[in-house]
Design a protein around this nucleic acid. Structure first.
Lengths: 195, 195
DNA sequence: CGCGGGTTTGATGATGCTCAAGCCCGGTGG
DNA sequence: CCACCGGGCTTGAGCATCATCAAACCCGCG
């Protein structure tokens, strides 16, 4: 089993993963390598997999009414990414997922997910905690977004995710934060002159 | 067992609930009745319960840096509400929860939650799906909030939650949508004249 | 009747968007 | 090796949206 994944499982489940479970899990997933700009998922298709990023990076997004892309999530190594609504329901996905760099992912389909979860309680727990955390931080981010202004959102993002700043182009960060790339450029200029 | 709760469990878990499980579950929770404006939780305390609303309504909120309250979630009958980060971690809560009306809730503490989940797989599944759904719709709401403007957010909210509109004061809906009550008033005026 | 919470209305101003142009830099093809 | 191209970042000017400050209004309740 991949080391990043093992660490993730043990960290979030709070339990250690037996060799047996690790082997069993590996049978449920497979690996795929993608070029920069390749799509892991295209909006409108049904999303049949959840993806665990082994190396590289990607992001999910949707098109707003004007056709501009709005970033929903970034995923570097060690993150899961998918369109969960589509994955669980089988309906068409609303998001697309694109690679920012050459990327390696592990893929797991729904049947595998269900089997793995019911066969190994540690996994059921792992995914529950993972989603719980994601939900909690999303709720918090939402409250911040509606109450704070662009500059604060940017500085908070920058301090919470210094690793993202190095590898993700500015215009995508702007989109994620809900501001225009021009505005973000001005904000950065502001901040630079402040200190 | 309360009927609303039974329906909720059966709907989200996709399974029917045995009488035995129902009785077992009831042993894990207790009921409480609160006045309008009473607090189910005060920010800064640790949140020891998750609450299921049997009748009445309430909402969670936090104070932004200016001290204004920002609504995070509404809960009518049949909804769960809590500060999950605090509930699971034991840390101090960032949200407060207040009743909008005289309200009856079921309360379940963390030990009961863990026991119930491990004793009854249907519950583990129920809560996982519940949180999954909450996460998915939160993600979607986030994308909308950063891309659409106040009027669109309001009309979407109004059409998705007609039941909320009847019972929740405007200034709280405004807060939930991230706009000022004055602005919402003007938006409503606009919309009224449009048709 | 008067108080107070919630909603409305008006005037003004700030924040961030739009449209438009220029710049920087890495990649590609001649 | 250089010129060109294009994607991303920057800068400027004008404008729309929404926040802020302030006051009036409405209405249920003690």
């Amino acid at each position: 089993m991949n080391d990043l994944l093992r660490k993730s499982i043990e960290q979030y489940s709070g339990q250690s993963l037996s060799e047996e479970c690790a082997l069993q899990f590996d049978a449920f997933v497979f690996e795929k390598t993608l070029d920069k700009k390749a799509l892991l998922l295209e909006a409108g298709q049904s999303c049949n997999y959840i993806f665990f990023v082994l190396s590289g990076s990607c992001y999910s997004y949707l098109a707003d009414r004007k056709g501009d892309t709005r970033v929903v999530q970034f995923a570097l190594e060690g993150y899961w990414i998918s369109d969960l609504a589509s994955f669980f329901s089988g309906n068409k996905s609303t998001y697309s997922i694109e690679c920012l760099e050459p990327t390696k992912v592990l893929m797991m389909n729904k049947a595998a997910f269900e089997h793995a979860c019911s066969a190994m309680p540690i996994l059921e727990r792992y995914f529950r905690v993972l989603i719980q955390n994601a939900y909690v931080s999303m709720q918090y981010r939402m409250a911040k977004t509606t109450s704070e202004e662009a500059e604060d959102r940017y500085t908070e993002f920058a301090t919470r995710h210094p690793d993202f700043m190095q590898r993700i182009p500015q215009y995508l960060i702007a989109s994620y934060l809900g501001i225009q790339p021009q505005s973000l450029s001005r904000i950065r200029k502001q901040l630079a002159s402040k200190r």
